[in-house]
Amino acid sequence: MNPTLLVAVDSIRALLHRRLLVALMLALLGLTAVFSVTVTKVKKSILEASELAAGISDGELTEAEQEQARQGIDQAGSFFLAGFYWFSAFGGTVVALFICCTAVASDLRRGTIHMILAKPVTRSQFLIGKYCGAIAVLFGYSLLAGIALVIFTQVNDLELNLAAQYAPWLMFCQSLMVGSVAMLLSLLLHPLLAAVVAFFASAGFFSSPNPLFFVLPSYDQFNVFGLIMNGRLIALEDILTLTIYAFDVAAIFLLLALWRFRSRDLI
C-alpha cells in the first residue's frame, strides 16, 4: 500500500482514538439533536396556541389570510431548518480546526512522527496522509450532519429544499478549505493560535473590495443559511463552481503547508 494511504489510515485511527475529538463531535451532534427536539416542541406549542392555526383548520379565515398564515408557518420552518444547518456547519468548522491544527503538532509532541519518518516515508507523503485522514473524518462528520438534517426535516414535516440538500456537501467543502488553512498555520504558530487565526482568516470577514480577497479564501458562498431560510434554490452549476473553488483553495494552502513542512526542523 502507498505510504500516503497508510499514514492516512493511521491518522483516521489516531483521530478516532482521541477522546476529546470524539467527545466534541458527539457533543455537537447531541446538541444538534437537542436543538431539533426543542424546536419541534416550540413549533408545536406555537401552532397549538395560535388562533391562526385554529383559523386555518376551521376555515374561519379568508383564503388570502389562510395563504398568508401558511407562508408564515413555512417561513418559520425554513428558519428552523437554516438554524439547524448553521449549528451543524459551525460544528464542522470547529471540528476541522481542531483536527487539522493538531494533526502534525500532536505527532510531534508524542514523538511518533519520528518513528514514521525514520521509515522510507517522505515529509510530503506524511503531511498529505495526515490531511487525507483528517478530511476523511470530516467527510464522516458532514455525512452524519446530512443524515441528521434529513431526519430533522422528516420529524418536523418540513420540505428539504435544494439549498438544504446540498448543504452537507458545501459544509464538507468548507471543511476542506478551513482544514488546509489550519494545517498551514499550525506549522507556523502554536496550534491554538493557529485555530483562532484560521477561523478569522477569511476574506468574508473583511469588507470588499479588499486586496485580501485575492489571498484569503472566502467561506461566504458556502454558507447557505440565507438561501435555506428564504427557501431559495441553488443551481447545480454553482455547487460545481464552489466545489472546484474549495478544492483549488485547499490545494494551494496544502502546497504552502508542504513547502513549510519540508524545510522545518521536526523537534
Partner: peptide
C-alpha cells in the same frame, strides 16, 4: 536510504 535502516530512539514513543 531509510529502506535499509532501523532506528530506536532514546525515549520510545509508539502509537
Amino acid at each position: 536510504t531509510r529502506k535499509e535502516l532501523g532506528y530506536l530512539p532514546e525515549s520510545v514513543q509508539l502509537h
